[in-house]
Simulated assay, not measured.
Amino acid sequence: MTQTLALIEEAAKKSALLWVQGPTGPSRALWHVWHAGAALVVGGPGEQPVDDLGLADGAVAKVTVRSKDKGGRLVTWTARVAELPAGGEAWGEAVAELKGKRLNAVGFDSLEERWARECRVLRLEPTGASDPLPSTSLAAVPLPTPATTRRPMPAALPRLLRRGRRK
């Protein structure tokens, strides 16, 4: 069991993303910070969406850690979800760790106040159980999205661009 926990910790420390499957909703990639034996995640308005995953205090989630360099699955483990109450000592420690790793944060100076007011800080603690790597790919159909792929360039655009350089 200690080997499994060591593998989970090492893999999670080296990977910036976790794939989290909650009791409800799709499996979702979430950025995290590994701290004090658990993965810390922040979600809510202006952050990553976690509400549709059913990650409530005391829930169980399935977490998959990918390889940072190749992107392949390293380990899948079961986590116990704990929601840290805003303003508590554990919440303060978690937010300090998360804030240091939050890239491109809007309103960085008031980030802690916004997280306390609008967001949820979750602790995903390994239960010690890990799943064996599956023999199939587990590929799934992508979720519906309004995003589109790049469309071909209009045929007249190169001529319009050339004409603009001559002036």
Rank of each mutant, 00 (worst) to 15 (best):
113 E>S: 15
35 H>Q: 02
122 L>C: 04
112 E>M: 07
36 A>V: 07
90 A>S: 13
119 C>N: 14
143 L>H: 10
143 L>W: 10
87 G>P: 00
71 G>P: 11
53 L>G: 04
38 A>W: 09
125 E>A: 15
78 T>Q: 15
75 V>R: 05
83 E>S: 12
98 L>Q: 02
112 E>A: 14
81 V>S: 04
136 T>A: 06
139 A>N: 07
64 T>F: 00
35 H>I: 00
70 K>H: 14
55 L>C: 00
106 V>N: 07
105 A>E: 05
81 V>L: 05
111 L>N: 03
27 S>W: 01
22 G>Q: 03
64 T>M: 09
94 A>R: 00
94 A>P: 01
23 P>V: 07
56 A>P: 00
24 T>N: 11
75 V>A: 12
110 S>H: 14
71 G>F: 11
78 T>R: 14
65 V>L: 07
101 K>S: 14
124 L>M: 08
105 A>D: 05
85 P>L: 10
51 D>C: 01
106 V>Y: 08
108 F>E: 10
122 L>N: 04
35 H>W: 01
117 R>M: 06
103 L>W: 14
44 G>I: 05
51 D>A: 10
22 G>S: 04
105 A>S: 10
40 L>G: 06
25 G>T: 12
121 V>H: 02
129 A>Q: 15
104 N>P: 00
87 G>L: 00
119 C>A: 13
54 G>L: 01
39 A>W: 05
40 L>R: 01
75 V>L: 05
118 E>V: 05
38 A>V: 06
34 W>G: 01
113 E>H: 13
86 A>L: 06
105 A>G: 06
45 P>S: 09
85 P>N: 08
55 L>A: 02
23 P>W: 07
123 R>C: 04
86 A>V: 02
56 A>N: 09
55 L>T: 00
49 P>Q: 14
57 D>S: 12
96 A>H: 00
136 T>G: 05
134 P>E: 08
76 T>L: 05
29 A>R: 10
35 H>L: 02
24 T>R: 06
104 N>S: 13
93 E>L: 09
105 A>R: 08
91 W>P: 09
122 L>Q: 03
43 G>H: 00
85 P>A: 09
68 K>A: 15
96 A>D: 08
40 L>P: 01
95 V>F: 05
82 A>W: 02
135 S>M: 07
29 A>D: 11
140 A>H: 11
100 G>K: 13
110 S>F: 12
71 G>A: 12
41 V>Q: 01
126 P>E: 14
57 D>C: 08
58 G>Q: 11
39 A>C: 14
71 G>H: 12
20 V>W: 01
142 P>V: 08
97 E>N: 01
40 L>H: 02
82 A>M: 08
116 A>D: 10
141 V>I: 14
59 A>R: 10
80 R>I: 04
121 V>K: 00
